[in-house]
Every structure is written in structure tokens, then in C-alpha cells.
């Protein structure tokens, strides 16, 4: 598969944003802590251990839950009328317009370069215990995968099914889900890179790092 890196970069440079709708994680009384247009930051620190800007507090059963920003950007579309009111789960509260940085551009372009193994159903996904143990010990990039390998468990309608990988052999270059995540049908699960393509991918990443200004 050939890709035109120049065109891809041009596309992202013309619209280097992503809008993230922030919805209430659960029910409770919401107390807003930001204003429209305010700049907010995402988690920082080596391990992203310092939380981002406090967006709102959701109080449920007497327990306040501090909802901090997972993205750096600007607040738009703030719904002030919700302040100090009971809200249901999944209610949109605001949007954060986030400018894509170099690593995020690499991540998005990688999806077009790697062989992406998608989720066959909307379900929860887990690595098999053997694969999870191997990854914990040696890291994901060490795993070589071939057609028919059973590496992922799909938990659907309370039934667990072993999923066989279908696709070209290669190295597990990217994992797009966390253990037990609910993944939409067709969303990427794994990104596989063939051994002969690895040098090209590494060069491409290097080029983006050089050409993209954060």
C-alpha cells in the first residue's frame, strides 16, 4: 500500500484540530468550573500523573467526582444552564477544541500505514491471559502475529469468544484498546506492521517529527 505522506500532512495542516465533546460520565449534580473560551490543559508529567484542568465536579451519593480535562485546548459550547443541577449520564456539557501535536499526527497517519485489524462486533476486548502476560513482560512490539493466531478475547452478550487474527503476518506495532474496553464495530483493535515495512514506518515517523511544528 503506497501512501502520499506530503498530501496527508497537508490535510492535517489545513485543519489541525479535533473537537472532543465532554459528556457526563454518570448521573449527579454538576458544578461547572470553566468558562467559554478558557484555555485548558490535559494531564502532564512523565506518566501523565498530574491531572489536567478541572472542568467540573459531579456530585453523586455525597461523593464529589472531579472531572479534569484529558485534552489541551479551548472550551467551547459550554452549557451553563446545567450548573448546579441534576444531570443524567451521557449529557454533553462542553466541547474542547484540541490542536493536534506531533505524536497525535503520527498516530493518525500510522492508522493509514499499518494493517489495522478491526473489531468485528461492538464488544469488550481483552488479550488472552498468555498474550497479556507476554506483553507485560516484554512489551507489545515484541509480538509476532500470523493469520489464525488467537490473541484476543471478545466478550459479547456475556459470552467470551476467542478471536483469530485475520491478516498479513507482522509485528504488533500498535494496540488501540485498553483491557476490557467497549469497542465499536469496525474500530481499530490492533495495528500490524510487516517486518519488511518496519524501516519505512520508522523513516516516516522521523520525517513527521522533522516537518511538523507543534
Amino acid at each position: 500500500m503506497e501512501i502520499n505522506l506530503k498530501d496527508l500532512l497537508k490535510k492535517y495542516k489545513s485543519h489541525p484540530y479535533e473537537d472532543h465533546e465532554i459528556k457526563t460520565a454518570h448521573t449527579g449534580i454538576v458544578h461547572l468550573n470553566v468558562e467559554d473560551g478558557q484555555e485548558v490543559s490535559g494531564p502532564t508529567g512523565r506518566w501523565k500523573h498530574r491531572p489536567g484542568t478541572l472542568l467540573y465536579v459531579l456530585e453523586r451519593e455525597g461523593n464529589p467526582k472531579r472531572i479534569t480535562s484529558m485534552y489541551t485546548g479551548f472550551v467551547t459550547g459550554l452549557r451553563k444552564e446545567l450548573d448546579s443541577n441534576f444531570v443524567q449520564a451521557g449529557v454533553p456539557v462542553m466541547v474542547i477544541r484540541h490542536s493536534l501535536n506531533k505524536d497525535e499526527i503520527i498516530d493518525r497517519i500510522l492508522r493509514e500505514v499499518l494493517y489495522v485489524f478491526p473489531a468485528p462486533q461492538r464488544a469488550r476486548y481483552f488479550f488472552t491471559p498468555e498474550v497479556a502476560a507476554a506483553m507485560e513482560k516484554e512489551g507489545a512490539n515484541i509480538l509476532n502475529i500470523k493469520d489464525g493466531d488467537e490473541i484476543v478475547i471478545m466478550s459479547l452478550m456475556k459470552r467470551d469468544t476467542l478471536l483469530s487474527y485475520l491478516g498479513p503476518p507482522g509485528v504488533l506495532y500498535k494496540v488501540y484498546f485498553r483491557h476490557g474496553d467497549l469497542i465499536e464495530q469496525g474500530a481499530p483493535l490492533l495495528g500490524i506492521c510487516s517486518p519488511e515495512r518496519l524501516p519505512f514506518v520508522e523513516r516516516m515517523i522521523q520525517r513527521i517529527r522533522t516537518e511538523w511544528d507543534d
Binding site: 460520565a25 454518570h26 448521573t27 453523586r60 451519593e61 461523593n63 443524567q88 449520564a89
Partner: peptide, 11 residues
Amino acid sequence: FRIANYKDPNE
């Protein structure tokens, strides 16, 4: 009422 999860007692 829309809730996050049927299995969350707090909801």
C-alpha cells in the same frame, strides 16, 4: 433516566 451502567449502584 439515562444512567451510565445498570451495574453501578451509585447510579
